[in-house]
């Protein structure tokens, strides 16, 4: 099942390294691609999504702009610590329209997913939507 709107399931972003209050991290989980969270400079940038309950995730789709390299980590605890690496991907540069990348996470139950943007095609990157397949 593909769930485009993580927010309606009770998943939310609990940590984000940048904050422009006009473009809050909630925009990542609201299911819409016309709302976004934007980084305000420097790399790495990261955000962490917490699921309401342990969820098995087979893949995530990330809609973004100017992201060059993304690393995903997970954990299955209630704490935002002790993450283990699950996947990474180099995104292609898409000028004028959004990047949309599916990343396979090979199942397994998670309570937190941590997204680390290690490099960008510009000083600033945006993340418009994260959806999961479970």
């Amino acid at each position: 099942m593909i769930d485009a709107c993580l927010g309606s399931q009770g998943a939310k972003v609990v940590v984000a390294t940048s904050g422009d209050e006009e473009h809050p991290p909630e925009n990542i989980t609201d299911g819409k691609t016309n709302t976004f969270w934007m980084s305000t400079g420097m790399f790495p940038q990261e955000f962490i999504i917490r699921f309401a309950e342990p969820t098995s995730v087979f893949a995530v789709t990330v809609d973004s702009y100017n992201v060059k390299h993304l690393k995903i980590e997970k954990n299955a605890t209630q704490n935002v610590s002790q993450f283990e690496f699950v996947a990474e991907k180099e995104f292609e540069n898409t000028e004028g329209h959004l990047q949309s990348n599916a990343i396979s996470l090979n199942g397994g139950s998670v309570t937190h997913l941590r997204f680390i943007i290690t490099a960008g095609y510009d000083h600033f990157v945006s993340v418009h939507r994260v959806s999961i397949q479970n």
């Binding site: 904050g19 305000t40 400079g41 420097m42």
Partner: peptide, 9 residues
């Protein structure tokens, strides 16, 4: 939520 949280380098 600081209005503009920016660590620029």
């Amino acid at each position: 939520y600081h209005p503009f949280f920016v660590p620029w380098y």
